[in-house]
Design a protein around this nucleic acid. Structure first.
Length: 720
DNA sequence: AAATGTGGAATTTTT
DNA sequence: TTCCACATTT
């Protein structure tokens, strides 16, 4: 078969793409063409008539991945992909719940809460039931709720072995009641409710099982217990499940990802035929030495399915490492190298600085700013999370779903309209007493006087907005609400309000863009555009910040770099305590997860890889001295080229920025920050010193043995 | 209702 | 140190 679709696939990719109607686990290494295989598989199923678009469901974790899949797929197939279900777990579940809201026991206009909304809801529950948030921190309950749901557990199924947990589970149950009354669902609820819908309604379950004969799952190593159960519900002996993942890139255990799903897959999804296992190990991204480093590092993990990346490409540049005296010097080094690369014609946008934790970006930003180098920091506030945008959305939510107390409280006095805390509390008490929503309570307003009339005016405002926007095209409805609510006027009058005004305008644009993008799909569900837009706003928080005009250096955590690639990558802060993070050391599988994280970082690089660590760094307002990361020791000799600075005398560098350095309490011959070796304790770093001559003692932070004071006269310390 | 002060915590993050 | 949530002040 000379299908152009299959051209240039390597034998393993070809085997995966053209697999018969069985379930399969594709172990796809970093840069092995995972997305290509996934999309080509779908295109091939369509091209050979083995599947119609209606019979395909493809699920991802992020909206970005879903979009990417759709756009690459449309380039591969002439078949109209409408009717295919491609989306995130949450997006697909939302779709099912909208279609079967009655069976799912939800109101038609149920709203989705993001994490902020969820926390606010918990605090409201606390207030209504006089729960002490000192004893029961709201965030802790939030974690318990989400973790429980992600394991598929309702409050009555959560095991509580102690009194504290028992109380928390009670609060969990109260929270669920409140959500149900308000007609709101949190993120994990979307999945859990859909899962229960399928388990409890055989007709529906059979319908979807018959419909989706092909289910494809991206990033399978990131699935949690509930997602796995959900997939099982959709699967019959006739279903082909094509799961793509990489156990070596499993870095989300902390949010419930369960790599064991990969091991269980072979057992649980073997139906008519055994599950096929295919490994994609040829890497199309990186030069040889980068892969050598990645392979060498990940070999130190015990729990692996086992994979080794290789490339037909060149060995390339050596991997380089740099030991900086301080975090400031580390940043200066990065600026130096970047300047050199940019002078050589590498675009700054093709260079990434990766770090373990966000706090590390500050020093690098500072150095880049002073060097006049454009950069972009990932992470932070998303568009739909901004206060002004959430306010506008709350008005829209209240129009669509008046029982939504969260939305009600957000805007009842914003912009300020003279409804004080007192009136709101009275309203809440009465709502609590009658078991009705704040909106209902506000409508049946028997309170006389000024407060009563303000509340009545608010009710009138929302009702007039509902009438005025009824039947309007979505962007015009949003436009109306932004004006009629007084939000625009409020921010226009405020100093520093321009950005917020811009964001409100941008919300109108977003509504317009959303309408255009979904136009083709409307008719299929006959959905209310406002409802869809509100779901969209909750499920897709939007970009962190608009892309810069000129190409900018990319700064991000290793986690957010997953799935991306760059010409040059700096992996920074490779220090014990930071990377691997100290918290991970007490966690189950913690160090191995940190190592996978380092593996992800390394495999982002196409051509050049720099590994850096700093011997001292400012952390939580204190200067800390860290030993180089164990990961740096896990590369075979000769693979990593240490740059001159390791040999260079520290004092040279210290002279460059003397003001930033603590003047060491001098012990002749030794320096704070110096790496040393001890016969018994091994490698360490000098972090303090005192005394002179025979009394001279140094404090050393040993990698293995911890912090110790040593008398120089007796301890046979060697410079390392 | 905004402005200012205080205490505590400070991996990683998407939906 | 720096950020945030929350409390108190003005």
């Amino acid at each position: 078969m000379a299908s152009p679709l299959l051209e240039n696939l390597n034998p393993e990719q070809l085997a995966a793409v053209t697999l018969p109607h069985v379930s399969a686990l594709i172990l796809a290494g970093a840069g092995s063409g995972k997305t290509r295989v996934l999309t080509t598989r779908i295109a091939w199923l369509l091209a050979t008539g083995q599947a119609s678009p209606l019979s395909i469901l493809a699920v991802t974790f992020t909206n970005k991945a879903a979009k990417e899949m759709m756009s690459r797929l449309s380039a591969l197939t002439p078949v109209n992909t409408r009717g295919m279900w491609v989306g995130t777990f949450h997006g697909l579940c939302n779709r099912m719940l909208r279609a079967h809201y009655r069976d799912a026991q939800l109101p038609q206009a149920f709203q989705i809460m993001d994490m902020q909304d969820q926390l606010a809801m918990i605090k409201r529950v606390y207030k209504a039931h006089n729960i002490d948030d000192e004893r029961f921190p709201a965030r802790q309950l939030q974690s318990l709720i989400n973790a429980s749901k992600e394991e598929g557990l309702r409050p009555n199924q959560v095991e509580a072995h102690d009194e504290f947990t028992r109380r928390q589970v009670e609060h969990f149950a109260l929270y669920e009641q409140a959500c149900q009354r308000d007609g709101v669902v949190d993120f994990p609820e979307l999945l859990l409710r859909t899962y229960e819908l399928l388990t409890q309604h055989e007709g529906l379950r059979e319908h979807y099982r018959r419909r989706f004969s092909h289910i494809l799952v991206d990033e399978f190593q990131d699935t949690n217990v509930l997602q796995y159960k959900w997939l099982k519900q959709l699967t019959s002996p006739q279903t082909s499940v094509f799961a793509v993942g990489d156990d070596d890139q499993s870095i989300y255990a902390f949010r419930g990802a369960n790599v064991a799903n990969m091991q269980h897959f072979e057992r649980d999804f073997a139906n008519a035929a055994p599950v096929k296992l295919i490994k994609l190990e040829q890497n199309y991204r990186s030069h040889g030495r980068i892969l050598d480093a990645a392979n060498a590092l990940i070999k130190h993990n015990q729990a692996r399915l086992g994979k080794n990346l290789w490339t037909a490409d060149a060995e390339g540049e050596p991997v380089r490492a740099f030991a900086a005296p301080s975090d400031i010097d580390e940043a200066a080094f990065i600026v130096d190298v970047v300047n050199g690369l940019v002078a050589d014609g590498v675009s700054p946008a093709e260079i990434a600085v990766l770090y373990r934790s966000n706090a590390q970006s500050r020093v690098v930003e500072h150095a880049l700013f002073n060097a006049g180098m454009p950069y972009r920091v990932y992470g932070g506030m998303r568009f739909f999370e901004r206060a002004e945008v959430k306010h506008a959305l709350a008005y829209l939510r209240l129009i669509a779903s008046p029982a939504d107390d969260g939305a009600f409280l957000r805007v009842i006095n914003f912009p300020p309209r003279g409804i004080g805390a007192r009136s709101i509390e009275t309203l809440q008490e009465r709502a609590q007493a009658t078991g009705s929503s704040l909106w209902q309570t506000a409508c049946s307003q028997p309170v006389a006087g000024r407060a009563g009339s303000s509340v009545a005016a608010f009710v009138g405002l929302i009702e007039s907005m509902r009438n005025a926007t009824h039947g309007l095209p979505l962007p015009e409805a949003v436009d109306h609400v932004v004006h009629a609510s007084g939000l625009l006027a409020h921010y226009t009058g405020e100093k520093d309000g321009q950005e917020r005004v811009d964001n409100l305008q941008e919300l109108i644009n977003a509504a317009d863009g959303f309408l255009r993008e979904t136009e083709r799909e409307i008719g299929e569900g006959g959905d209310d555009p406002l409802m869809s837009f509100l779901s969209h706003a909750a499920l897709e928080a939007g970009e962190t910040q608009a892309a810069e005009g000129r190409p900018a250096l990319q700064l991000m955590t290793v986690h957010s770099a997953k799935g991306l690639e760059f010409h040059t990558v700096f992996v920074t802060g490779l220090e014990e305590g930071l990377f691997p993070h100290e918290n991970s050391m007490s966690e189950f599988d913690g160090i191995e997860e940190e190592r996978r994280l380092a593996y992800v970082a390394i495999t982002r690089a196409r051509r050049r890889l720099y590994l850096t660590h700093a011997q001292s760094r400012m952390l939580h307002g204190q200067l800390r001295y860290n030993v180089a990361s164990r990961f740096l020791e896990e590369f075979p000799d000769g693979l990593v080229q240490w740059l001159s600075a390791r040999r260079r005398d520290f004092t040279m560098v210290e002279d460059a920025a003397p003001a930033t350095r603590v003047v060491a309490r001098e012990v002749p011959g030794w320096r704070i920050g110096q790496s040393v070796k001890h016969a018994k304790f091994g490698l360490g770093i000098i972090i303090d010193a005192e005394g002179r001559g025979d009394d001279a003692r140094v404090q050393v932070n040993f990698r293995e043995a911890g912090v110790k004071w040593l008398a120089l006269e007796y301890a046979k310390l060697q410079p390392a």
